[in-house]
Simulated scan of single mutants.
Amino acid sequence: MALWTWGANSHGQLGVGIANEQIEKPTKVEVHLYHCKINQIACGGGHTLLLDNEGKLYACGWNSKLQLARETEVHKLERTWPLSGVTFTNIVCGWDFSCGVTDDQFLIVWGSNSYGQLGVPTTPKEYFSEIMKPIRLPINAVLVSMGLRHTAIVNSKGEVWTTGCGRHGQLGLGNSVLSSDRFQKVEGVGKISHIACGQNHTVAWCSEERALYVWGDNKHGQLLLCSEKYKKIYTPNKIDIDVKQEVKKLLSGWTNVILWLEDGSLLAWGRNNNGQLGTDKLSHQEHSHISSFQVKGREVKDVAVGSEHTICLATDNTLWAWGWNEHFNTAIDLGHQIVKPTLVPLEIDKNQKITQIYAGGAQNFVVIEE
């Protein structure tokens, strides 16, 4: 198993041992996992978490708010010893905060809590810090997503609970709750099966109803509503997008959303100023309608979304990317915006197989197996 990376690296978040502006070409990462395999990677604004198949945690990158759950910033993926007694099943990063779901489905949170995004009280100030070391919350979490300043979880009942900044309506708790420092239940949604936080919005999918629920900032049409009429939505709106099949993934960038469907197609909407929607042309108009597309006629095997770019693995073992490219987020040397799915120049042998892909912020990771 080999790990490759590229993109922004100003805090050493790529784990290659240095901090620099960017790594332009896919580069191999040396990481010592003590005979374990990579189970999952999560990317924040400038930090990276890695989970091995035994539930052990590793981290590197930006650590100004202790989002690595360690005292010092490191530029290689190193074991997070303060959490060595915990077995994680899922890890998630926000901008400068992080969390992990434990094997008994409880939530451990750490990093910035300046907006209450960890679900930990922010007052009184003499007792509670804006920077939190890991703390275990008595909260059942099956799904977790983190945005710029807010967090959403789905529990085993399919209920949604949110915490953090709600100025744009991203908490879905109504226009009288513009911030929260504890998880509160979002009313008016069905049994949720997928959830994703954007920069200042939240989207959720209910498989039973085959319906999308949206709330928060809609300035760029990311909620599929007319942005001139509906700039912010403070409570969940149910939208029928006429999808009659299973949803494999619901993903959100800062201001765009992607649905990956069972038939391998991708639905995208929201902002397209950097080619985030993969629609062959840039647009500075807001997209409050759905674009449906496939990746060069190929079947999608997996897809991952950063803040304003997307990487996609096809079933023929090729990797494609589009969107924001200022820090070589796509590894494609064709300018600052890649407007349509374009082949990533990943030099691998025929006997090597891409098995996992991850993106977040402006960084990317792919796992390759012989």
Rank of each mutant, 00 (worst) to 15 (best):
W6E: 05
G7D: 08
G7T: 02
S10M: 10
L14W: 05
A19S: 15
E24M: 10
T27Y: 04
K28N: 09
V29F: 05
H32I: 09
L33M: 10
L33W: 06
Y34M: 14
I41P: 01
G45C: 10
L49A: 05
G55V: 09
K56S: 05
Y58Q: 03
A59E: 02
C60I: 04
W62K: 11
N63Q: 12
T72W: 04
K76R: 15
T87N: 13
T89S: 12
G94A: 09
W95C: 11
W95R: 14
W95D: 07
T102G: 08
F106R: 09
F106N: 08
F106P: 00
W110T: 07
G111P: 02
S112G: 13
Q117C: 14
E126G: 02
E126C: 09
L137P: 01
A141W: 01
M146K: 13
G147T: 08
T151P: 03
T151C: 07
K157S: 15
W161P: 00
W161E: 03
W161A: 06
C165R: 09
H168Y: 13
L178S: 11
R182V: 10
F183E: 00
E187S: 14
V189R: 00
K191G: 10
I195G: 04
C197A: 12
V203R: 03
C206I: 05
S207N: 15
L212M: 11
D217T: 04
L224P: 00
Y230W: 11
K231G: 11
K238D: 05
K238E: 10
I239V: 14
I241G: 11
L261K: 15
E262A: 12
D263C: 13
G264A: 10
L267R: 14
G275M: 03
G278N: 08
K281P: 03
K281Y: 08
S283T: 11
Q285R: 13
E286M: 08
S288V: 03
S288P: 03
S292M: 12
F293A: 07
R298Y: 07
R298A: 06
D302H: 11
V303N: 01
S307M: 12
E308D: 15
L313C: 11
N317Y: 10
W322L: 04
H327F: 12
T330P: 00
I338T: 02
I338E: 03
K340Q: 13
P341D: 07
T342C: 07
L343D: 00
V344W: 01
K350G: 15
N351T: 12
Q352F: 02
Q363R: 10
Q363S: 15
F365Q: 04
I368D: 05
E369M: 05
